[in-house]
Amino acid sequence: MTDAAVQHTDTSKSMVVDHALSRRLARDHQRKKQPALWIGGAAIVLLFGFGTFALNGNVRSLILAAFWGLVIAIGFVAIRHLGTQKLTRVIEGLYPSGERLTVTVSDTGVTVTTSATNLTVAASALWRISTAPHSVMVRIHGLIGPAMILPRELLDDADVARLRALAPRIRRG
């Protein structure tokens, strides 16, 4: 089969946005980025606590490490909570509750349409597509976070595979 014989059509799906959508999408995003923070924090506590205990043999070093471990854990939980709240408000602004949300996947990219927004990411700008239980995150070159967080129910596995084919992680040339 030649490239001329392969023909893709635009796939477009829509839904009415419910009140819980923004919280589900924000939680998915936070879950994707949290493990590295927790591993880094635990490594710092272990290195600090057991390192100083190994150097001086004092049990107070372990107690101090436990204290700092508790402080770091509280900090991470607070950061996650605040990040989720902020992202929830942003998503609520993009996808207003009660409005119709339409996602169109084509060979030229992905388009999200509501009454408040019309966002398009060209296929040439796509960098990475990642999925979570309730969301699909579209990343573009140059951004640290996702450019779009889409509801998973609007993109089936074929749509995700199509977007991934358009968005290789490492571009050559």
Rank of each mutant, 00 (worst) to 15 (best):
F53P: 04
F53Y: 14
F53S: 01
L55C: 05
G57P: 09
G57Y: 09
N58F: 14
S61C: 07
L62Q: 08
I63V: 15
I63F: 15
L64T: 11
A65T: 02
A65L: 05
A66W: 00
F67S: 10
F67V: 14
F67Q: 06
W68K: 08
W68D: 02
G69L: 10
G69R: 08
L70P: 10
L70C: 13
A73D: 02
A73H: 05
A73S: 10
V77Y: 08
A78I: 14
A78V: 12
I79P: 00
R80V: 13
H81P: 03
L82P: 01
G83E: 05
T84F: 07
T84K: 13
Q85H: 07
K86M: 12
K86C: 05
L87T: 02
L87V: 03
L87N: 04
T88Q: 04
R89Y: 05
R89H: 06
V90D: 04
V90Q: 10
V90E: 03
I91R: 02
G93A: 14
G93S: 15
G93F: 11
L94T: 03
L94N: 09
Y95K: 00
P96F: 03
E99N: 11
E99Y: 04
E99W: 02
T102I: 13
T102M: 10
T102K: 13
T102N: 01
V103K: 01
V103N: 00
T104I: 05
V105I: 09
D107K: 13
D107H: 09
T108S: 15
G109C: 11
T111A: 15
T113M: 05
T113D: 02
T113C: 05
S115N: 15
S115P: 01
T117E: 14
V121C: 03
V121E: 03
A122I: 08
A123V: 11
S124K: 15
S124G: 13
S124F: 13
S124C: 09
A125K: 15
A125D: 14
L126M: 01
L126K: 05
L126N: 02
R128H: 14
R128S: 08
I129Q: 05
S130G: 14
T131S: 15
A132P: 01
P133W: 09
P133K: 13
H134T: 03
H134V: 00
H134M: 02
M137W: 05
M137E: 06
V138S: 07
V138E: 00
V138N: 04
V138A: 07
I140G: 02
H141T: 12
H141Y: 11
H141S: 14
G142Q: 10
G142D: 07
L143V: 07
L143S: 13
G145F: 09
G145M: 11
P146G: 08
P146R: 04
P146M: 08
A147T: 06
M148R: 06
P151H: 06
P151E: 01
R152N: 06
E153P: 00
L154A: 08
L154P: 00
L155H: 02
D157N: 12
D157M: 07
A158W: 12
D159R: 06
D159W: 01
V160E: 03
V160K: 04
V160G: 04
A161E: 10
R162H: 13
R162P: 05
L163Q: 11
R164N: 06
